[in-house]
Computed example of a mutant assay.
Amino acid sequence: MGAARWIGRGEKESADQAAVDAMRLMLDTVSMDGMLFNGEEVGDGTGPAVDVAVDPLEGTRLTALGQPNAIAVIAVAERGTMFFPGAAVYMEKIAVGPQGIDAIDITAPPADNIRAVAKAKGVSTREISVVVLERDRHDELIGELRDAGAKVNLIRDGDVAPAIAAASAGTGVDMLYGIGGTPEGVISAAALKCVGGGIQARLWPRDDEERRKLVEAGLDPARVLTTDDLVTGNDVFVAATGVTTGSLLRGVRYLPNGAVTDSIVMRSRSGTVRRVEATHALDKLEALTGRQYR
């Protein structure tokens, strides 16, 4: 909700900062000894030692422009079970639902993966819908996917939500394909571990210097990373809340003196997925936190 007040205002930095501040405020109240990728400690220092991956606002530009699919998301797993990407900012990814896990091969041409997923789902390639980030680096990929018969849905930002959507019924998404953020790949793997989908990934160094740093750190850019490589633990929790309405979650809706949020909460060990619609009294929330939400 901290970010939602910036929807459509053209200020992605303000939206992002509001989300970061609000998430940090809430995390500091949680009974856990949490550690982020960058070594920052979160939680109140008590409770279990856990790895924490967050994206306080996945889709800063989406929020600023009032476009769909912006979410706030957090993943928590046992300490030492989340993949540390080193210097790698980006990775290649393919995310699919349960039927496509054994069909995909990130080393194969995109057309082969489209045909394999279509066969696994028992449908025509023309019925396969693929989400791809709209980037110049994906021009060739988009052409190959379309030549294979797939429908390509281009998004400006935010590939965690479509990764989860690929494993969720009724979203109209069959696959996420392409190069995106490495931390988001780890969060996606955590979520897919909960809902039953899967991901394959490879680190994507942007230049020779980044490749050298990865090799020196013992990370092989050619290695295919699976869901279990990205999150090795079996006790994983993921929660996401919609900021703007998208294929997975509804965005924040405002009432005369309140707001309604739509969230999904997942646990891998039990396979439980909860949908939570919450109503918030903004006067009370602002008094409690000292922050603005409208």
Results as ranks from 00 to 15, higher is better:
199 I>H: 07
170 G>Q: 10
200 Q>D: 07
112 D>K: 09
186 V>C: 03
144 E>C: 00
101 I>N: 12
82 M>G: 01
128 I>E: 07
199 I>F: 02
82 M>D: 01
122 G>T: 11
128 I>R: 07
170 G>N: 01
105 D>F: 02
104 I>F: 00
127 E>C: 03
168 S>I: 15
82 M>L: 06
202 R>Q: 12
141 L>Q: 11
182 T>S: 15
152 V>A: 05
195 V>I: 15
92 E>I: 07
108 A>R: 11
155 I>E: 13
109 P>L: 11
89 V>F: 13
100 G>L: 12
181 G>T: 15
135 R>S: 11
171 T>A: 05
190 A>D: 03
166 A>R: 09
86 G>W: 05
145 L>S: 07
174 D>T: 09
200 Q>S: 05
154 L>F: 03
201 A>E: 00
150 A>M: 03
180 G>A: 15
108 A>M: 02
99 Q>C: 04
107 T>P: 08
164 I>D: 00
98 P>K: 10
137 R>I: 14
97 G>I: 09
137 R>P: 00
198 G>W: 04
183 P>C: 02
114 I>V: 15
97 G>N: 08
104 I>Y: 00
196 G>P: 01
112 D>H: 08
96 V>F: 04
143 G>R: 13
159 D>Q: 15
192 L>H: 05
182 T>Y: 02
88 A>G: 09
140 E>Y: 01
95 A>F: 01
146 R>T: 14
173 V>A: 06
154 L>I: 01
192 L>S: 01
99 Q>N: 10
95 A>C: 14
178 G>E: 06
120 A>H: 11
97 G>T: 00
163 A>N: 05
196 G>N: 04
184 E>F: 05
107 T>Q: 12
108 A>N: 05
186 V>R: 00
148 A>D: 14
98 P>I: 10
165 A>I: 09
168 S>K: 13
167 A>K: 05
188 S>L: 11
190 A>H: 06
165 A>F: 09
198 G>V: 04
137 R>A: 13
182 T>I: 00
88 A>Q: 03
81 T>W: 05
132 V>S: 03
90 Y>L: 14
143 G>F: 01
